[in-house]
């Protein structure tokens, strides 16, 4: 067993917020409250949860775009956050991001070639022919033609722009790609093409994906492991089969039950109503079943993530 590529250990992110009223003191917004996970090479780990659960903040911390208040992030065993961490340049070669909205994430005044060559040049590749070769190979990998390199973003369709976004993320050959809702802005037919492309690229290049999504059918299709987040904490963690076939936490079950799915709606396939057996529960309550909105200004009550089956963990209130 090799060491995980990325290790996130007890990550906390808190934001100081000006309090209410004129004389109100500062309040603290508890965005991420103790997230820990490992990401292995070639794995797709998904973080699911609803707006405000802290999934994007977690991703931004890994990208170095949001400083962690507490906790550590290690990449290949080396510190990846805080003062001892790498600089921007090294980080860019390890982790890249594909954004949700392909319209907003490309510079409208730059051709695809300019967008793709800037990172290469910044990272010390001087030879014009090498740059152009790498761009052409990258475009071919994401299903675009070399001639399209000299066009501007507005000349492409939404699906093509997302392909450019993927090319831009992969041009420096990072090992980890953070996918932030990579297909939720796309139409159904385009979405399928991009999902297929992402899976092909992952296999071909041995990429590790950290996917953030609220679309559980996409998550089930793409992930190896899944983290379910609620109010800045992981409430359930497990392999995709464990999460989708035997969900344990009531919030996970609520999320799955809420998906409008044609097969389930029409009762053509019975959704598994099974849930995991929890022998160790002995009277301990689940933390937050998601039926009440969390108060983000209150430090969450003590609780622990308990492993009850290999790799399958669920969050319970602290033992008395």
């Amino acid at each position: 067993m090799t060491a995980p590529l990325l290790q996130v250990d007890d990550l906390h992110v808190r934001f100081p917020i000006a309090g209410g009223g004129l004389l109100g003191g500062r309040r603290t917004l508890y965005a991420v409250n103790g997230i820990s996970f490992d990401l292995a090479k070639g794995e797709c780990l998904s973080i699911v949860g609803e707006s405000g659960c802290g999934k994007s903040t977690t991703a931004l911390s890994i990208l170095g775009l949001q400083e962690a208040t507490e906790g550590s992030i290690r990449y290949r065993g080396q510190p990846f956050s805080g003062a001892g961490g790498p600089g921007r340049m090294q980080r860019a070669r390890a982790v890249q991001m594909v954004f949700q909205d392909p319209y907003a994430s490309l510079n409208p005044r730059q051709t695809v070639r300019t967008s793709l060559s800037a990172p290469l040049r910044l990272h010390g590749i001087k030879s014009a022919s090498e740059i152009s070769d790498r761009i052409e190979a990258m475009l071919a990998d994401v299903g675009l033609t070399p001639e399209q390199a000299d066009r501007y973003p507005h000349e492409f369709s939404g699906g093509q722009r997302q392909r450019i976004g993927i090319a831009r993320a992969l041009i420096l050959e990072p090992e980890i790609v953070v996918l932030d809702e990579p297909v939720s802005a796309l139409d159904v037919s385009i979405r399928a093409q991009i999902i297929n492309l992402l899976l092909d690229l992952q296999e071909k290049r041995g990429l590790s994906y950290l996917m953030i999504s609220h679309d559980l059918s996409v998550v089930e299709h793409m992930s190896d492991r899944v983290l379910v987040m609620f109010a800045g904490q992981v409430v359930e963690e497990g392999g995709w089969r464990q999460i989708f076939e035997t969900p344990a936490h009531p919030y996970t079950r609520r999320l799955i039950a809420a998906i409008p799915d044609p097969d389930v709606a029409l009762r053509r396939s019975e959704r598994s109503e099974r849930s995991a057996d929890l022998p160790m529960l002995d009277g301990r309550a689940f933390v937050a079943d998601g039926s009440v909105a969390p108060d983000v200004f209150v430090r969450p009550a003590p609780s622990e993530l308990v492993e009850f089956a290999p790799g399958h963990k669920v969050r319970l209130a602290a033992a008395h």
């Binding site: 159904v188 037919s189 979405r191 399928a192 999902i195 559980l216 059918s217 996409v218 089930e220 299709h221 995709w240 089969r241 989708f244 076939e245 799955i256 998906i259 799915d261 044609p262 097969d263 389930v264 396939s269 959704r271 598994s272």
Partner: peptide, 9 residues
Amino acid sequence: ALPRLGSRS
């Protein structure tokens, strides 16, 4: 083109 819930299992 639609990923269906449960089809992977």
